[in-house]
Nucleic acid binder design. Structure first.
Length: 261
DNA sequence: AACTTGCGCAACCGCCAGTCG
DNA sequence: GCGACTGGCGGTTGCGCAAGT
């Protein structure tokens, strides 16, 4: 038998936190700062284990937490990061500082996983990665171009560093190009054109720059893009745009504009 | 109105890694 | 080096509520 868990101790309360308990915990943390959770139950009289106190603080009471609906931008970012990092919710959360890893995990499990099939999500996100990230000299995405903000805390900073290391392994292979025309798109795989129609209901709602027939993709003929040749990536993109009800997408960056236009 | 079903989310569980004596 | 302890993380559970019948 392993050692007993703290929450197995007699008298330890489980279940939802009451407002009174929240007040006690917040008051204590405001006075002493987060950390040393072991001492929290002992010094506050809370009949909760230290782990429960820490979780309650980090997932619910911590200042700056944004609750409520996820924006299309956040949604896209989660999908994108999940495809690169897998279920590393803490790492993903480091790029959405106002969201907790628990929130992101819940949102993924209850919304995004259903919306986007596994393979589809992967492909969509490869598309998004191409647009979110600048690349370094050898084609690796530059994580610094991701909208990671407010990385000043040590936890978030170290997570961001971990992501940077993970991203090093993500490289682009050569030989594929993609071009987009307004209302339709075509992809080129190893010199072979495959065309898939993009039946935009309202093409003008997308932020096509200028009046050029070619959207300003962030990569050009002389750049390389990793795409699985057995897929129709832009068909996936099409589904993304139509099914996810993303109102406006900047084709150049892949960013959901979320009412910016 | 009563009951059932499905969903969202807060909280718990178990494992792991780091630290300390 | 070793074991105890703590904090962090990802997976899972179960309660409460809304929607459907």
């Amino acid at each position: 038998m392993g050692r007993s868990l703290c929450c197995d101790k007699l008298g330890i309360k489980k279940g939802p936190w009451t407002p009174e308990e929240d007040i006690v915990l917040v008051s204590y943390v405001q006075k002493h700062g987060p950390g040393n959770w072991r001492s929290v139950p002992a010094n506050t009289g809370l009949m909760r284990c230290s782990k429960s106190c820490r979780l309650r603080w980090t997932n619910y009471l911590r200042p700056g937490i944004k609750r409520g609906n996820f924006t299309p931008h956040e949604e896209g970012l989660i999908v994108h990061l999940q495809s690169m990092l897998g279920n590393k919710w803490a790492a993903i959360a480091s790029y959405l500082p106002q969201r907790t890893d628990n929130d992101i995990k819940n949102y993924w499990n209850t919304h995004l996983k259903k919306k986007i099939g596994k393979n589809q999500a992967e492909d969509v996100c490869h598309e998004l990665v191409s647009r979110y990230c600048n690349t370094d000299q050898i084609g690796n995405p530059d994580v610094s171009t991701l909208p990671a903000s407010n990385l000043s805390s040590t936890t978030y900073a170290s997570s961001a560093e971990n992501i940077s290391r993970l991203l090093v392994g993500w490289t682009r292979s050569s030989g594929n190009q993609v071009k987009v025309d307004q209302g339709s798109c075509r992809s080129v795989f190893n010199q072979e054109f495959t065309t898939c129609t993009l039946p935009l209901k309202e093409p003008t709602s997308f932020a096509l720059q200028e009046s050029s027939s070619e959207a300003p993709f962030p990569f050009h003929d002389d750049e390389n893009l990793r795409l699985e040749t057995e897929h129709q990536p832009l068909t996936v993109l099409e589904n993304w745009l139509l099914d996810e009800a993303v109102g406006q997408v900047d084709i150049a960056t892949g960013l959901c504009l979320d009412g910016m236009y």
